[in-house]
Write a protein that binds this DNA or RNA. Structure first.
Length: 470
DNA sequence: TGAAATGTTGGGGCG
DNA sequence: ACGCCCCAACATTTC
């Protein structure tokens, strides 16, 4: 009579449809499976380890164990069904191709053996096969989102079950500490804890704080990386510590109480919409993480240059805003959205490096690494996505800095070597003025890796070669 | 959810 | 008072 409930990238009790369904039927055996196929970058795995601790504790408080196993999904579930005598397995749906395939095979294997197997809506607002126009997926964000908010109903979230009966038989668990997801030497991850509280409670706290004190200024403040007006919920969403349905419902309820924040809330929900759009794209176009959706970009003359890539990764390009962003990413596992666009544009257009190289670096270093968001956004920046920024939309890193970090607060925070420069000096190209403030180019800070004007022209030339292709 | 190049307009200085 | 020029400010187009 026992049901196994699988936890994967949905490390929460709230609005966990599979868990809620199983708990209503009888005893539950919660299982976390780590299939090597599902592993993401190093930063993501570190967070997942922290989040697992929280999940195990929350289950423990309710008298439930969390059985952790590492290996191939089908084999593990097969073993666990035998060891526990479970008669059903439930899970929340996943939408990326490899995971869909695994879960499909799992369902078939279980049903052949007479075990109930059922999947439930996963961590998006609406199932991708329900948002179509003339049977085709949307390829442009605006009509997609308009359609979704106008015509579709987001399911109400499931509350945490009041009581969850524990399974009598509990198979032994592996110790996730043995999985080596936490770096030892050097321990690059422990500083993250100064910025983040992984786990479902941390997610709830972040949301409460966002609604309370950040949302009101979100519409205008979200563009200024020093302003701290964004939600910083992305890692929590990426690990499923809060569901988008719950987030949607909480924001709607907040706006009912504070109608003057409607505009800001809509803007925020639109960002959730971009996440949704990315996941729908990944569902319909499984090649999204590797292959440009615009086929003509297959022939783009990217450069391969390890030296340039390394300089970008380490924040040593000589462009203060780019370097500040790359250092924030390395030190905190996160990067403000505006700065993601700027460093992305710089990699792809100023350095002419392939967007996949940036995608891979973000995948490894972002705590919120998410296959849909990461690949869709890089294709957007590179101009090769379906609804992408046109290739010729080339960010000027100096202008972006003056517009969105006018007082240089953000750049000085992440570039201690420039902390003595006031904004006016930072924005002047007069190296003598920099020297007067104690910063010698080439000694204290690098000269720019490339000249932006030249790089811009070169990028446009490279782009022009594409259009000649049939 | 750009930026640069190019075009237009209108106020003010000045002969 | 008038026309001319300059140029900032804004608008449009082009990449």
């Amino acid at each position: 009579m026992t049901s196994i409930v699988l936890f994967r990238n949905d490390l929460r009790l709230d609005d966990h449809p599979a868990l809620a369904h199983a708990a209503a039927l009888g005893p539950v055996l919660p299982v976390f499976l780590s299939d090597p196929q599902d592993e993401r970058g190093a930063a993501y795995q570190w967070w997942q380890r922290q989040s697992l601790r929280v999940l195990a504790q929350r289950l423990g408080e309710r008298g439930l164990p969390l059985v952790c196993r590492r290996g191939e999904t089908l084999a593990l579930v097969s073993e666990l069904v035998q060891e526990s005598g479970a008669t059903a397995v439930y899970w929340n749906r996943r939408y990326a191709a490899p995971q869909r395939e695994i879960d499909g095979q799992l369902k078939e294997m279980l049903r052949v053996r007479g075990i109930t197997a059922e999947s439930f809506p996963g961590d998006i607002l609406i199932e991708p096969w329900k948002v179509l126009r003339d049977g085709q997926p949307y390829k442009v964000f605006s009509p997609f989102w308009k359609r979704l908010i106008r015509d579709m109903v987001v399911d109400a979230p499931w509350d945490i079950p009041n009581q969850i009966q524990a399974s009598e038989k509990v198979p032994p668990s592996e110790d996730p500490n043995d999985w080596n997801w936490e770096p030892r030497r050097p321990d690059w991850a422990s500083p993250f804890l100064a910025y983040w509280q992984p786990g479902e409670l941390g997610a709830a706290a972040r949301l409460a704080e966002f609604l309370e004190s950040r949302l009101a200024d979100y519409a205008s403040g979200r563009d200024y990386p020093a302003a701290e007006k964004v939600s910083r919920l992305s890692p929590h969403l990426a690990h499923g510590e809060i569901s988008p349905r719950r987030l949607w419902q909480r924001v709607q309820a907040h706006v009912e109480a504070q109608p003057e924040q409607r505009r800001a809330a809509d803007k925020f929900l639109q960002e959730l919409g971009w996440r949704e759009f990315s996941w729908h794209l990944l569902y319909h176009f499984p090649q999204l993480p590797h292959t440009p959706l615009r086929p003509e970009f297959a022939d783009f003359p990217w450069q391969e240059d390890e030296r340039l890539l390394g300089a970008w990764q380490r924040g040593q390009t000589g462009y203060p805003l780019v370097d500040a962003g790359m250092r924030e990413l390395w030190q905190t596992g996160y990067l403000h959205n505006r700065v993601r666009m700027i460093v992305g544009s710089f990699l792809v257009k100023d350095l002419l490096l392939p967007w996949q190289a940036g995608e891979a670096w973000f995948w490894d270093t972002l705590l919120d690494a998410d296959p849909a968001n990461n690949s869709a956004s890089w294709q957007w920046v590179a101009g090769c996505g379906t609804d992408a920024a046109p290739y010729f939309r080339i960010f000027n890193p100096y202008l972006q800095a003056e517009k969105f970090d006018a007082d240089a607060q953000y750049q000085r925070r992440w570039l201690p070597e420039l902390a003595t420069l006031d904004a006016a000096t930072l924005y002047s190209s007069d190296s003598g003025r920099w020297r007067d403030k104690g910063v010698v180019l080439g000694r204290d800070y690098l000269a720019p890796l490339v000249d932006h004007q030249l790089a811009r022209d070169r990028a446009l030339e490279a782009f022009a070669t594409l259009k000649k292709q049939p």
